[in-house]
Design a binder for these strands. Structure first.
Length: 574
DNA sequence: GAGTTTGAAACT
DNA sequence: CAGTTTCAAACTC
């Protein structure tokens, strides 16, 4: 215990609860510490280690499951979070890399951030490192999941528990108890919070809100706390309630006024972090998918199908304007994964202060790449057409001066040029290589314009890798002879290619503008109200309109959510 | 620090 | 699986 207290100088008492958003900075600093941690052997000291590793996941970009190697050796000291194992007697020489973090409450195995509430209340004593939490079990002998230590898979040590059997002397009893629990629930010792990278990963957060990535596997069942107190496991883990939850009067959902107020009353750090996240996510590319977030309990249908009944709830009343979810009961919950994406795209309250492009959920990296590929094809086709003309001219010219010796000389000269990279600019070489390696439509299409080449640079690399083409185009490359003799003609090809590419790109942009405009319009509160009105008028008499998949589908088909690029099959699809 | 509230775990 | 009890943490005073 003394050791524990000694080390506690640098270790928070409660791991998760003392993790606050400011630890983002500390996390980097922690990277310098692992060596020290690696040397820790005694249980009490080893138990401190998680604090360092857990200081890392502050940004919600992080998922707790895959730990980046950079996050360090200290992490190696922590046990696999998924299935904590009871540690054999730690004393003599326990493997340092399998220590289990000391209790982090029942959510211990996951990375946790200190909840805003605890920060606000100060019961986390955040920045002041304390010794670790100790259980106070009295009747469970620390052999049930009530006991944090037992749940975490560690011995009680220095705890305030009574009649504790969670120690070395009762190892047999511990194992029995563990076995019984596992028999009842094989996942009992697995993390309760699962990362959810595939779910709504919106780079934006509601103003002043940051959540850890993940969601509660079982979901909470809160009834009175509104899921805004640490009684709630979700809240305690600093995640939003999800569709897994069966809570009542939940206020722990994105956009919740109460929740928001909680954050605002707390620290402004969150807003700062939000800005950082917004900056990270960007409008295009990450498209709001770059930052995995917990699934939002608020579903798409809540946006479109809020009924009068639901709106009578105080929360619903206060939040309806912001398109917030009404309190959700288990019966009304829905598990439609695709809706997470929908939420990310549509459900953002209009009062979010962070700008987000209306195209954020329309354009995805895949689409951009697809566009580039198709532009390349367009350009290639144009080049091919023009190249055909030139080739005929070349053949004519060659026949006119047909001399085997001349031809060989020409060939040799060309090879020399190619090998020495003389007389052929890089773009032309690339064009030749690309057309030669493509082996398809573009094979004989001749050189590409520099602009086209820039677009297809990625494709080139990929194709070369796949085709295993020899370094540079061989002398058998049909495009090379043309190139060396008809540079002047390339200008024409370039012009045509660029014209086509730019035209195609312009069309895409126009389409995007249209989509963005539509989406922006449809996402406006006014438009949503109108849609809700329409839905209600259509669905009068429907028992549970919000849970009917048909309506969910409809919500997607209204053109707001569904990305036109998600099914883009070509430029025309844009 | 004692008492109360709360919700997960355990039990029926 | 639902309802109840037990339990310990969170919370209040």
């Amino acid at each position: 215990m003394e050791q524990s207290e000694t080390v506690s100088e640098v270790a928070p008492k409660k791991l998760a609860r003392q993790l606050d958003f400011t630890t983002l900075c500390r996390a980097s600093a922690s990277a310098a510490v692992p060596d020290v941690q690696l040397q820790l052997q005694t249980p009490s000291v080893a138990q401190q280690q998680p604090q360092i590793s857990q200081a890392k996941p502050q940004l919600h970009l992080h998922l707790q499951s895959p730990q980046p190697a950079a996050v360090h050796s200290s992490k190696q000291l922590t046990p696999p979070p998924a299935i904590p194992q009871f540690q054999a007697r730690p004393s003599p020489a326990p493997p340092a890399n399998v220590r289990i973090p000391h209790p982090v409450h029942k959510l211990s195995q996951v990375s946790k951030q200190e909840s805003p509430l605890s920060r606000q209340r100060g019961d986390g004593k955040d920045c002041t490192p304390k010794k670790q939490k100790q259980c106070n079990c009295k009747n469970s002998r620390c052999l049930k999941l009530y006991c944090e230590c037992f749940t975490a898979g560690i011995y009680c040590e220095g705890c305030n528990c009574s009649n504790c059997h969670n120690n070395v002397d009762n190892e047999a009893a511990r194992q029995d108890a563990r076995g019984a629990i596992l028999e009842r629930n094989p996942n009992a010792f697995q993390p309760k919070i699962a990362s959810s990278p595939q779910e709504s990963r919106d780079g934006r957060e509601d103003a002043g809100e940051i959540q850890a990535a993940g969601r509660h596997n079982k979901g909470c069942h809160c009834k009175k706390s509104g899921c805004l107190k640490k009684y709630c496991e979700c809240f305690q883990a600093n995640i939003l309630c999800s569709e897994n939850c069966k809570c009542m009067d939940c206020k722990n959902f994105e956009g919740s006024e109460e929740r928001r107020a909680l954050y605002h009353e707390g620290h402004n750090t969150v807003a700062y972090m939000q800005q950082a996240n917004a900056a990270i996510s960007g409008a295009i590319g990450t498209s709001g998918y770059g930052t995995p977030l917990v699934s939002r309990k608020r579903k798409g249908y809540e946006l479109y199908f809020t009924t009068g009944n639901q709106s009578t709830h105080p929360i619903a009343q206060s939040q309806q304007e912001n398109h917030l979810r009404p309190p959700m009961t288990s019966s009304s919950q829905l598990s439609v994964p695709i809706f997470h994406a929908a939420n990310a795209a549509v459900s953002r309250p209009s009062k979010t202060t962070t700008y987000r492009s209306p195209l954020a959920d329309i354009i995805q990296p895949k689409n951009v790449k697809d566009l580039c590929s198709r532009l390349v094809v367009v350009a290639g086709a144009a080049a091919k057409a023009l190249a055909g003309n030139r080739e005929r001219e070349t053949i004519d010219k060659t026949n006119a001066t047909s001399s085997t010796q001349e031809g060989n000389k020409h060939k040799m000269e060309h090879d020399k040029q190619h090998d020495d990279h003389i007389g052929v600019n890089q773009a032309d070489r690339n064009a030749s290589r690309f057309s030669g390696s493509n082996g398809g439509d573009v094979q004989d299409s001749g050189p590409m314009s520099p602009g086209t080449l820039a677009l297809m640079c990625d494709e080139q690399d990929k194709m070369f890798m796949e085709a295993g083409l020899p370094n540079g185009a061989g002398t058998n490359n049909p495009s090379l002879p043309q190139k060396s003799t008809q540079d002047i003609g390339f200008t024409e090809v370039y012009v045509e290619q660029e014209r086509l590419v730019l035209t195609g790109f312009r069309d895409c942009l126009n389409h995007l503008i249209t989509r963005g405009s539509i989406k922006e319009t449809m996402c406006s509160p006014q438009a949503k109200r109108e849609r809700v009105s329409q839905k209600e008028s259509v669905q009068v008499g429907t028992a549970k309109p919000t849970t009917d998949p048909r309506y969910q589908k409809e919500a997607y088909s209204n053109g707001i959510v569904k990305s036109p690029l998600s099914s883009a099959n070509g430029l025309e699809a844009w």
